[in-house]
């Protein structure tokens, strides 16, 4: 009898947390109770960068993480962190459910992880307290908080904004006082962080649609029999549709709450200039043949 310890930085009840719990239920059924899953939510075991290391050591068996912390470790994950690489959420689903997703999952293995499934991370858009962003010119010189990642910093600079890395916990008061003008995130985080209370303009440009990943420690994986390994893979796969349903419901609830609070949501924007500005970012970060090939395959996917 094995209990797989799983880490997640999101709180209990969050779609990714519930999806892994669901996976555990399926696994328990398919193995007659031999394998179960215990989710440590709310970053109890540490932030993503730390839990990724712990997963490598086999202290944590399963880990639901964003792609960002893997970018400098597993090169292939960079491709999904590129701005405007997907045409939309459905396109992202088609790519990640197909052979490209399969290849990226396999790329984790040499680094000590077994890639099991991709979850949704929503699409990230800009919000600010100053004015509705309707064109790329509106972003010019605006101080926008981004995550500490080279791609995101370069993306903001390419758009003419002043990329300002800052700890997440300081963003709310920094927007309120004007240290920064805005930030960027998906509907649920824009709502749950309370940032919509201080940044009243939300521009749905969907510059980043980055899936998240569920990985297993190679150490823990090798302890399982081939049948059990297959059972884990099956259960992880089966948790994906559950996760997507939960995610959609969550996104909708957040959107309703934000709109009800009187936030101005800008949907009418011409994305072409934004996408055109990304050439320099692609040039700088898509350097290897492996990445170039992945990008063109994603572009070729309907």
């Amino acid at each position: 009898e094995v209990t797989l310890k799983s880490s997640d930085t999101h709180p209990d009840g969050y779609p990714t947390v519930e999806a892994v719990k669901h996976m555990g239920k399926l696994l328990q059924e398919s193995t007659d109770g031999r394998i179960c899953v215990e989710v440590f939510h709310s970053a109890q075991l540490g932030q993503e960068k730390d839990t990724i290391e712990q997963t490598k050591f086999g202290v944590i068996d399963l880990n639901r993480v964003s792609m960002g912390p893997f970018n400098n470790l597993v090169e292939e994950t960079k491709v999904v962190s590129l701005p405007y690489v997907f045409k939309g959420v459905d396109h992202m689903h088609r790519v990640m459910d197909g052979p490209i997703g399969e290849d990226i999952l396999k790329a984790f293995e040499p680094h000590g992880y077994v890639g099991l499934a991709f979850y949704d991370g929503g699409s990230r858009s800009f919000y600010n307290r100053v004015k509705p962003i309707k064109s790329i010119e509106d972003l010019d010189g605006m101080k926008v908080r981004v995550m500490q990642s080279d791609i995101f910093v370069d993306m903001m600079s390419a758009l003419g904004a002043n990329a300002t890395p800052m700890p997440y916990g300081e963003v709310y008061s920094s927007i309120q006082t004007g240290v920064i003008d805005g930030a960027e995130n998906n509907w649920p985080s824009y709502e749950s962080s309370g940032h919509y209370e201080v940044a009243g303009y939300y521009t749905l440009d969907e510059h980043l649609i980055v899936p998240e990943v569920l990985v297993m420690s190679k150490v823990s994986w090798d302890k399982l029999s081939p049948e059990d390994q297959e059972a884990v893979r099956q259960a992880a796969r089966a948790s994906v549709p559950v996760m997507r349903d939960l995610w959609q419901a969550r996104e909708k609830a957040s959107e309703e709450k934000v709109r009800a609070a009187g936030v101005e949501v800008i949907t009418e924007i011409d994305k072409e200039p934004f996408m055109a500005a990304m050439d320099s970012v692609y040039e700088k970060h898509v350097t290897s043949d492996k990445l170039k090939d992945l990008v063109s395959r994603i572009r070729a996917t309907d």
């Binding site: 009840g13 969050y14 008061s173 749950s192 309370g194 209370e197």
Partner: peptide, 20 residues
């Protein structure tokens, strides 16, 4: 105010709470 801990609490509470 300002207390980072209140923000941490709000996020831990699943974000249903107004930080203000």
């Amino acid at each position: 105010p300002p207390s980072h801990n209140m923000i941490i609490y709000s996020i831990s509470a699943g974000g249903r709470l107004s930080i203000a």
